[in-house]
Design a protein around this nucleic acid. Structure first.
Lengths: 178, 178
DNA sequence: GACGATACGGAACCGTGGTTCCGCTTGTCA
DNA sequence: TGACAAGCGGAACCACGGTTCCGTATCGTC
């Protein structure tokens, strides 16, 4: 791949992230191209369709979430690990608040099955450890946890301060007092 | 208004709710018309644009939420009132899970300012009472609460069991132990 | 520095889907 | 029951936006 092509690919991805975040999933390709300072033709050279461009952004986004989950799994204390995932995720959600709104309707599982599975796998370990240690309420499984994270993401995109959202979720997940 | 016109208006609204819930905000008007068993012309007789149709659905949705908030305000115990709003809202979110996904990108405030204000007003009273009674964490204000409800809605749309989501939020909102 | 391959820009194309228009039907009222 | 207004259906219209295409520019190599 030629050097300028690689440069342009990066410019396009950066612009697309920005554009999707600011204008939602229905930004025009022209707008993305303009932000990137390239022509539409260049967009289509790197990504055959708009959908492919969106998929790549989502893939990178999932990769960041997987990284967080894996970092958490390196933490010994299950309770600390759980809190770590929640807080780090909340911060990530805050940094990319716009993307959440843009891609809310899309099902990541359909678009990036591999990454989705990896994320779920990593989170399963965290939940499992928390369950054994008794630091998470009984009726929350991995799917429930993923949904709640999804909710956290929405809350933060809606304007909730991310630390506050994280605290509420973390506190709410603790097993109810006997 | 003629009787058949009134009937059709109802049919259209029902069909639109169903269509938006199932297919998202970008359902075609033709699809809504087909579900309602009327022609597109009839749609446009009752709602001048697609946007107007969506606005009416959102208005009814906000009305339901306002009703819940007002019911809660009739409850004496601030703690019970807070839990009531959360649980009732969660159930409503569950019943109309699809709509949330469809309209996530839209800002209700811009579309139905009056209803949005009314909802915010009702919730303010609930939060205020909870604050005075010391049954809600200090760093959550009305806006934060609205955002968290928005998050709850997203979590439920994402598949979290609504009772579970409500319990987590209710527990998480309690002031942290000293 | 010249040549071939690779990449770029952006005007033009075309399908999709919101909206309009008008001839026909149906409800309402005297 | 007849007349008129109100409402209906759906084909046709048209703007928008994703995608293609090709002449031009740039890169990398000899």
């Amino acid at each position: 791949m030629r050097a300028d092509a690689r440069r342009n690919r990066e410019k396009v991805l950066r612009a697309a992230r920005e554009a999707f975040a600011e204008e939602g999933a229905d930004v025009q390709m022209d707008s993305v191209a303009h932000r990137a300072g390239v022509g539409v033709g260049t967009l289509y050279r790197h990504f055959p369709t708009k959908h492919a461009l969106m998929a790549e952004i989502i893939r990178q986004w999932l990769a960041a979430r997987i990284a967080i989950a894996e970092d958490a799994n390196a933490i010994q204390d299950p309770s600390v690990a759980l809190r770590f995932v929640i807080h780090q995720s909340a911060e990530l959600f805050y940094e990319h608040a716009g993307l959440r709104n843009a891609f809310a309707e899309l099902h990541a599982v359909d678009i990036c099955p591999a990454e989705s599975t990896a994320l779920q796998h990593s989170l399963t370990a965290i939940i499992q450890r928390a369950r054994v240690a008794g630091v998470i309420r009984e009726n929350v499984d991995v799917d429930g946890f993923l949904s709640l994270l999804c909710g956290l993401s929405a809350a933060i995109s809606a304007g909730a301060p991310w630390r506050c959202g994280a605290e509420v979720l973390a506190a709410g997940l603790a097993p109810s007092a006997p």
